[in-house]
Design a protein around this nucleic acid. Structure first.
Lengths: 107, 107
DNA sequence: ATATTTCTTCTACATTGTAGAAATGTCGGA
DNA sequence: TCCGACATTTCTACAATGTAGAAGAAATAT
């Protein structure tokens, strides 16, 4: 099982968003979460294509949510990080941590 | 001063490496540091092209180091993060921190 | 029916990541 | 002084990721 995945920056942020959103992790909401939390503007297209690629790589999975729609709106596609995705996330975080260990710098 | 830079994953790691290496931050050494610390294999070409791009963006600067060469070997090109680069680094770190805030997950 | 709303798909291009071979400059010894 | 071994950087090319926005689809209410 070649498990040498490396997450890009945006992929990293997206998986983090999925973890915090849980069952409410669908495209539009993910985008909103990123804009609010990370303070970073993104287009909805950017979010979906990244999500699709993560799914292709098996780091994320998706399924159609029940028709929750209260007043108009299409069925949601809910995303969830797979365990493989979580491992990839952990490796990325760890790499960063290792690089930061004991490091301080002047602004 | 448009200061909306976003660091890619590798760029992020490279700048961290520069900070920890200080005056010893030249290509080969940067590569070595990344392999050891981050546990990630990289080619020397990958390191240099990323460094070059960071320099073009003004996030890093470089100068030729004195001919330290003790037994053979060409002069080193020493790299250093600019203050703009450090700001970019801080923004990236902050974005990630914000996304992680209060988050826990099961492996 | 159709307008309105919410959400997803598709298409296209820009930026970053990645590798490896080729080039460059330095040193010690024949 | 020419040569071989070395350490380091430069160049070239392509793959993967980031990014945007317009177009399409499904649901509700009137």
């Amino acid at each position: 099982m070649s498990d040498r995945e490396g997450l890009g920056e945006f992929e990293h942020i997206i998986i983090l968003a999925l973890l915090r959103l849980g069952d409410d992790a669908y495209g539009m909401r993910v985008r909103q979460e990123i804009e609010q939390r990370a303070g970073r503007e993104t287009s909805i297209g950017a979010v979906y294509s990244t999500l699709d690629r993560l799914e292709t790589k098996g780091l994320v999975e998706s399924f159609t949510g029940e028709a929750t729609a209260e007043r108009g709106g299409r069925a949601k596609r809910i995303f969830k990080a797979t365990s493989k995705g979580i491992h990839a996330l952990e490796r990325s975080q760890q790499a960063l941590m290792n690089m930061m260990e004991g490091l301080t710098w002047k602004a």
